[in-house]
Design a protein around this nucleic acid. Structure first.
Lengths: 194, 194
DNA sequence: TCGCTCACTTTACACCGTGTAAATTTGACA
DNA sequence: TGTCAAATTTACACGGTGTAAAGTGAGCGA
């Protein structure tokens, strides 16, 4: 990507990320980012056409930095469906807090900006595919609860592993990350497995 | 409340409700409400100091109309904790779609308007109390899973019954309301009960 | 050294939606 | 007829996004 080749662009993305990580989502304005990146607000628009695209670019940059791809590959190596589900909860569940800042900002824009909505939608569809793969693995093993269709199981898994549920438990209820992972594994095992 | 005594106030609340029910949350502006209520935008400010208070007043009006109180009383009559949990899922789970419009608008304001945040917070705390009561009833019966503290069980129940999860399953995944209720009952039984 | 380009700055402005302010109209009722 | 309240009209301030255009300055090749 163009993240490495262009130093200011990279600095902008880095700054946006850090600002979103601490400050509360919509509190991060274009002018805040500009100031923090030691750039004029207008210069921001030389690199990104609007706020939505800047946020989306930041998520892509994060994926790049965290090398999410290779982490996903690891979770696919699991032998049993049950093991795969546990791995998937770990991989995605632990990724959530790292992207939470941008996620929050992007989710806040969802009903005002169609482009931002589509971008977030796309990323969540990718997560859904991870969920679907885990459910399929369970089904292959004959471990999927007979009360659930694969679609229903995927929907449930996807919902329980959503950023919103993580937010509710870890931010609003004050759960530690470890506890979140452990309880999600337990909960999903009980809900999905026969 | 002053909802009955004042006809225009009532008309405003009614209009706000209907507009939020169809239109997408933040798409409902003060001017939209004014137009639909056949009033000037300024007249709105004669009745409500700002958008946040108008939305909050609308939720209170909704509770009044739906008489949520008496519904809650009914769910408390259940004999066993298990039965009480099932009833609670029905009562609150079926109330969500009725308030979803306002909920969405209010949730969208959460990180821009402190007053709106506090108002929504307060309402959700009331829901949490319903969850806590159900968990307590389970604990009294000795039916609560030994792997969960009462606090954890309440947090989980509260999270799974959140508006966001309902939204995810019923709006994003296209579930029917009945299916939502049924699966939530099943899921929560498996997660919370020993 | 001239002149070009590129990245960025400065200044200024349009648009939207919220909220404030004040003068004016309308209608009921005494 | 006069008064009062409710609502209207008009106008404006503010904050945040995005656009537009002229200006600055460093680097670089001819």
């Amino acid at each position: 990507m163009s993240s490495i080749e262009n130093p200011t662009r990279k600095r902008i993305l880095e700054t946006t990320w850090k600002l979103l990580e601490k400050g509360g989502a919509s509190a991060v304005r274009m002018s805040d980012i500009a100031k923090a990146a030691k750039i004029s607000r207008q210069a921001l628009y030389l690199h990104f056409p609007n706020r939505a695209e800047l946020l989306v670019a930041t998520t892509r940059y994060l994926d790049e930095v965290h090398d999410i791809q290779s982490q996903l590959v690891a979770s696919r190596a699991a032998e049993t469906g049950e093991e795969r589900l546990r791995e998937w909860v770990i991989v995605w569940g632990n990724y959530i807090p790292r992207i939470y800042g941008i996620a929050k900002a992007l989710m806040a824009m969802q009903d005002s900006d169609a482009e931002a909505a589509a971008a977030w939608e796309g990323r969540m569809q990718a997560v859904r595919e991870g969920c679907a793969a885990a459910v399929e693995a369970l089904a292959r093993d004959g471990a999927l609860s007979p009360e659930l269709s694969e679609k229903e199981a995927t929907d449930l898994l996807w919902s329980l592993l959503s950023v919103r549920v993580w937010e509710h438990l870890c931010i609003d209820c004050g759960w530690e990350q470890d506890r979140f992972i452990a309880h999600m594994q337990r909960t999903l095992a009980r809900v999905l497995i026969a």
